[in-house]
Design a protein around this nucleic acid. Structure first.
Lengths: 204, 204
DNA sequence: GTCTATATGGCGATAGAC
DNA sequence: GTCTATCGCCATATAGAC
């Protein structure tokens, strides 16, 4: 989120919409609630964004970019593979700890409107092929075990994201609904996920 | 319910409600749509289930039981740990392959009504403590590496469930939106997830 | 740009005939 | 049990004053 405080109405609306949409999703949110959260009235929402759908799409794109940031930069760098993975997992889980509700929000909405999802992904310019090539080179060089690169990438994402996606469920089942304990646990996971993955794939 | 001369209207409603609720969630579903799907009229829905909320709860409980079945039976058996894990992962991913939309449905709704979620979990009699004890015994015996048993359990669930939860996203990003390819990939994952986990934790 | 008031349609739920 | 008709409310969106 931007640290700069802009007092203009559009930004107040965007912040309010993000708060409400993330909590209740597109279908569960009400324009009145967003207006209240922003401290304005409903008509003004429509003045700025015309429809609920357009307002929602603005929020979705913004949140999507945060939840799936561009990881190409250092994942395609010259660092050794264990450092690349360690850095990515640490940075990524830290990012999710700052925005713990982003993943569930994205998951909630991706099945609602697949066409829109496809548009967003394309506008992001996501191209995982280079990532797969990088993994395959590491396998070829005998530094990690041979496996489907897509499996590996999905495993990394799953281990990082799932605990946030299933947060309320896991919190009740495994942590007696104590949020502080669960948050401490998630912080520790930065280490444990890294070890779990490297244990599995690294050839030493 | 009454076993033999089953009035099948109730069943038609439940099937229709499951279809619609799983696709659109509680907020996105309309009673009219469920009635159409069941080939009856709205009034009859209310005659059988009184409110949308009650109908939804019936579906949620049913789907929840399928998505998180009782795994205590053979996970607490006398089999060696690698067989327990292998069997669980294989059975669980097979189950999800038969019901690929169940996980996303559960995830979508768990944050909407946490109190109801807590009720459902309690009514399931879920008690993971014995599972954690089992894992800790295996660590004590030196058969698997030492780690937080909750991390291990979450990792197993994450690797199995996440590819189904994020299905539309992964399908577009990694598989060119070709559903057949992705389904074949998910079948293979039964093996690859098993290997990934055992590689990581097994002491040989 | 921002407000109040209102149009317009849709939804969950019920009444009441059969 | 099943239907048609309708109620009462609430949601998105717009009109129009300031």
């Amino acid at each position: 989120m931007s640290g700069i405080k802009k007092d203009n109405t559009e930004e107040k609306i965007l912040n309010a919409a993000q708060t409400v949409f993330i909590k209740k999703g597109m279908d569960g949110s009400r324009m009145q609630e967003i207006a209240d959260e922003a401290g304005i009235n409903k008509a003004l929402l429509h003045y700025y964004f015309r429809t609920k759908q357009k307002l929602f799409e603005a929020i979705f794109k913004k949140v999507f970019k945060h939840t799936f940031p561009n990881i190409g930069e250092f994942m395609l760098s010259d660092l050794p593979i264990e450092e690349k993975l360690a850095t990515f997992i640490e940075k990524y889980i830290s990012l999710l700890l700052k925005n713990p509700f982003f993943p569930a929000f994205i998951i909630k909405e991706i099945s609602r409107d697949p066409d829109f999802l496809a548009t967003v992904i394309k506008s992001q310019g996501v191209n995982p092929n280079k990532l797969f090539e990088m993994f395959e080179n590491e396998m070829e060089a005998g530094r990690i075990i041979r496996m489907d690169a897509r499996d590996l990438m999905i495993n990394i994402l799953a281990l990082s994201i799932f605990p946030f996606v299933a947060k309320p469920l896991i919190n009740i089942m495994f942590f007696g609904n104590d949020k502080k304990t669960y948050n401490a646990f998630l912080k520790k996971r930065k280490e444990s996920v890294k070890e779990f993955i490297l244990n599995s794939i690294l050839i030493r």
